[in-house]
């Protein structure tokens, strides 16, 4: 399968090899990933709580979101780079891991929720920007955002404890068992 050979190439790449063999690589990259994820969630939470009308209600929504989302995107970029490095180190195993797949789904859901909010709900922001309580669609988007990002974080931690044993002999492995 094409995807499998892509994963194998990724796993055989120089950055992946560095991640596997340097004692410093994983702690540094993983630590950075955690800090980036904390920044992503922290800044998004501030925006979501404003959407829910629970915090910063005396400031216009767009003012809060413009300030925060710059940090969010910067940190998200960092999380993608560090996450890709960790994935590459053992691509085949992560790809087959259920918690990893669910995390990617949760990430996709968070992204879709954000896209719908940006392209639909935010169009009429002028009408409610300074309101303490934004309209229902905006509040729903804020609540879903919090739930999806919490899912991403918990599923991410799940990955590390659900790797188990995969005893299957790879199909493409031509191994000589007789001597």
């Amino acid at each position: 399968m094409e995807l499998m050979s892509l994963l194998q190439d990724l796993q055989a790449s120089a950055p992946a090899e560095w991640m596997r063999t340097s004692v410093k690589a994983m702690p540094l990259v993983e630590g950075t990933h955690v800090l980036a994820a904390a920044t992503v969630f922290g800044t998004i939470l501030i925006v979501d709580l404003r959407l829910l009308g629970l915090r910063d209600v005396r400031r216009a929504f767009t003012r809060v979101s413009d300030e925060m989302l710059r940090l969010t995107w910067g940190a998200f970029g960092l999380a993608v780079v560090t996450g890709a490095l960790m994935f590459a180190a053992n691509a085949g195993t992560y790809y087959g891991n259920t918690a990893f797949r669910l995390k990617m789904l949760a990430l996709l859901a968070a992204g879709l929720n954000m896209a719908i909010f940006q392209h639909r709900t935010l169009r009429g922001v002028a009408a409610w920007d300074v309101n303490a309580t934004p309209p229902r669609a905006a509040r729903v988007a804020g609540l879903l955002s919090i739930l999806f990002w919490l899912s991403v974080i918990f599923l991410a931690r799940w990955i590390g404890f659900t790797k188990g044993y995969d005893f299957a002999v790879p199909d493409d492995a031509e191994i000589n068992f007789q001597f």
Partner: peptide, 25 residues
């Protein structure tokens, strides 16, 4: 005989097929 190595960051695993006593298979 090694079938696969899982280079896990926390615990590397080697998967293998144990040989028989004759060491022929």
């Amino acid at each position: 005989v090694v079938t696969r190595v899982n280079p896990d960051a926390n615990h590397l695993q080697i998967f293998f097929a144990p040989m028989n006593d004759e060491r022929k298979n």
